[in-house]
């Protein structure tokens, strides 16, 4: 919402356009620059984008969540287990026969979202009620949640996810054109963009990160607001979990381990301040796309895979440096 963001938004967008332009030139025609590749890139970025929307709000408000990867895994386990258990007996599943498919899918999705939101509430209460710094609180819950998921599943991928869930939803497309993951990521992003930039809730989110005491004195219920942000982020983990189970027809304990840091990187690259009070969803969209674009481009260019990490790291450093310069410029006055 604050206007001075526009400059850095434009900078990061230009950087993305430049990266796309370079890859388009140096790769064989019809490989990188093609509709189907754009679809692959968006598909890869969609989960990160959804999680990054939650992290954008949290960072702006002065919070942090390192447990989103673990919550996603836990929720995915819930989704996969519930769906597998309700769809039919093990014997029926072995024949790929699922008598209660509709109920199973509906209940599993609801459970996944609720469990994600529930863990988010735990984070929120730890950070707000017990006043544990969010870095430590969510680091700890991340470990606990992942540990419980591991104990529950014995570290095994969860089996017996009904195959139609993957074939019709995970591999399915809206109007046979846009994969569902991308559609859902777009809807989530749009909702979060509107809430952040158009509503009282969004304004208060900025105010809390800019000056928590000022927001409190102005009558913002800062504690409830912060808890809600953690709950919302947890619910987003639930959404990603549903998409993950749909795509891979399993819940893997080892997936998503780097999600928290990837999301923070994407959000910061997109111009959101690590110090709170500043940030925009539009920047986050660009920030979440950059790693996926670099991955696709480097693979297609046949560049050593590790260069992708180098490139994302460099972009992240530049983004944080710009942020700090801004803060210093402000403190000087």
């Amino acid at each position: 919402m604050p206007r001075p963001q526009r400059l850095s938004d434009a900078t990061i967008l230009l950087l993305l356009i430049a990266i796309v332009a370079v890859f388009s030139i140096v790769t064989p025609a019809g490989t990188f620059l093609s509709l189907s590749n754009a679809e692959s890139i968006l598909l890869t970025a969609s989960q990160l984008l959804i999680l990054s929307c939650g992290i954008t709000f949290l960072l702006i408000a002065g919070g942090l969540d390192l447990s989103i990867g673990s919550i996603t895994i836990f929720s995915a386990v819930v989704v996969a287990k519930v769906m597998g258990a309700l769809a039919g007996t093990a014997a029926q599943a072995a024949d790929f026969h699922y008598p209660n498919l509709g109920v199973a899918i509906t209940v599993a999705i609801v459970c996944g979202l609720l469990v994600g939101a529930g863990w988010g509430a735990v984070n929120g209460l730890l950070a707000v009620k017990l006043r544990i710094p969010p870095f430590i609180a969510t680091l700890a819950t991340g470990g606990i949640v992942l540990g419980l998921a591991s104990v529950w599943t014995n570290g095994q991928n969860v089996q017996n996810v009904p195959l139609p869930f993957q074939s019709s939803f995970g591999l399915g497309k809206l109007f046979e054109v846009i994969p569902w993951s991308i559609v859902i990521a777009a809807v989530v992003t749009a909702v979060f963009w509107v809430v952040l930039s158009k509503t009282r809730f969004g304004l208060h989110t900025y105010a809390m990160g800019a000056n928590l005491e000022a927001a409190r004195r102005a009558g913002v219920n800062v504690r409830r607001h912060m808890v809600l942000l953690y709950v919302g982020t947890g619910a987003l983990c639930g959404i990603v979990a549903v998409l993950d189970v749909a795509r891979f027809s399993t819940a893997s304990i080892t997936s998503h381990s780097g999600d928290a840091l990837s999301a923070i990187a994407a959000v910061v690259i997109g111009g959101t301040s690590l110090f709170g009070g500043r940030g925009r969803i539009s920047g986050t969209v660009v920030g979440a796309l950059i790693p996926a674009v670099l991955q696709s481009g480097f693979v297609i260019m046949d560049v050593q895979p590790f260069w992708q990490n180098v490139a994302v790291g460099v972009v992240l450093l530049v983004a944080v440096y710009v942020d700090q310069v801004k803060i210093r410029a402000q403190e000087r006055t």
Partner: peptide, 24 residues
């Protein structure tokens, strides 16, 4: 008006004037 002013530094003046009492 407290000595610390209680302003949100990253927000523009209008958002500060209306903080907590934004018109719907």
């Amino acid at each position: 008006v407290y000595q610390d002013l209680a302003l949100a530094p990253t927000l523009p003046p209008d958002a500060n004037l209306f903080l907590g009492r934004e018109p719907a």
